[in-house]
C-alpha cells in the first residue's frame, strides 16, 4: 500500500475519525446518566441553599423531595430570554427567587437571587455556575461572601448602579453595601453591575405572588 497516495491518506483519516469518535461517544454515553444526575443535584443544592432549606440527608433524592415540597418553579419570558422564577410554598412570608446572570471577568456568571415578597431586601444569593479565577473571583461562592447578602436592603430610590454597593461607600450608615473580594476587583465590579441591572429587570417583571 502506497502511504503517499491520496486515497490512503483519506481512508486513514476517515478510519481514525470513526474509531476515535466512537471511543469518545462511548465514554460520553456511558457517563450520560451520571452527568445529568450531577447537574440536577448541583442545581437542587444551589436552590436549597438559596432558600435556606435544610436537607439533612445529602442524597440526590432528598434534594429532589425538598424542592418538590418547598419550591414552585415556573418560567417566564422577557423578550427572547427565559427566566426561572422560584416561589416558596407553605411559608409565612414566602420568599421569591429569580435566575440572574451576566458577564463576569472571564465568562458568564449565573445564579439565583432570593428576594423578600415586597422586593425590598435580598434574602440570599447563590451561584449555579461561573468560570472566575480559582482562589480569587471564584470566592463569590464562599459563604463569607454570600452571607453578606442575607437581609441586605435594596436602595430602590438610588440610581440603578448604586442600589447594591460593593466595597467602599460614601456617607455614614450606608446599609446597602457589602465587602468586595480582595484580589478580585474585576469580578466584584462585574457582579455589582449585572446584579443591579438584573434587580431592575426583576422589578419591572411585576410578578404576581
Amino acid at each position: 500500500m502506497n502511504k503517499k497516495s491520496a486515497w490512503y491518506i483519506i481512508g486513514f483519516m476517515v478510519v481514525a475519525c470513526v474509531v476515535f469518535g466512537t471511543g469518545v461517544s462511548v465514554v460520553h454515553n456511558a457517563t450520560l446518566g451520571l452527568l445529568e444526575k450531577n447537574q440536577r443535584l448541583h442545581r437542587n443544592r444551589v436552590i436549597c441553599r438559596a432558600f435556606l432549606i435544610d436537607v439533612i440527608d445529602q442524597s440526590p433524592e432528598s434534594y429532589d423531595n425538598a424542592i418538590l415540597k418547598n419550591i414552585k418553579i415556573r418560567t417566564i419570558t422577557e423578550g427572547n430570554r427565559a427566566r426561572n422564577v422560584y416561589e416558596q410554598i407553605d411559608a409565612d412570608t414566602p420568599s421569591i427567587g429569580f435566575d440572574f446572570g451576566g458577564m463576569g471577568f472571564w465568562d458568564r456568571i449565573n445564579g439565583i437571587v432570593v428576594l423578600s415578597p415586597d422586593l425590598e431586601k435580598i434574602i440570599n444569593i447563590q451561584f449555579f455556575d461561573h468560570k472566575e479565577t480559582p482562589g480569587l473571583g471564584a470566592r463569590i461562592e464562599e459563604e463569607w461572601f454570600t452571607d453578606q447578602f442575607k437581609g441586605l436592603p435594596i436602595a430602590w430610590e438610588k440610581p440603578v448602579s448604586d442600589r447594591i454597593i460593593f466595597g467602599h461607600a460614601t456617607g455614614a450608615g450606608t446599609v446597602n453595601r457589602i465587602d468586595a473580594i480582595t484580589g478580585a476587583t474585576q469580578t466584584s465590579m462585574a457582579l455589582r453591575r449585572f446584579l443591579n441591572e438584573e434587580l431592575e429587570r426583576i422589578r419591572n417583571l411585576k410578578i404576581d405572588l
Binding site: K4, F12, M13, A16, F20, G23, V24, V27, L35, N38
Partner: peptide, 26 residues
Amino acid sequence: PQRIRMIVQVLIIASYVMMVDIVIRA
C-alpha cells in the same frame, strides 16, 4: 502517513482529552 502525522496526533490527543474531561465532569 508522514504528511498528515501531526493532524493524526492532534486527533488522538483531542480524543483522549475529551474522555478525561467527560470522566472528571462525571
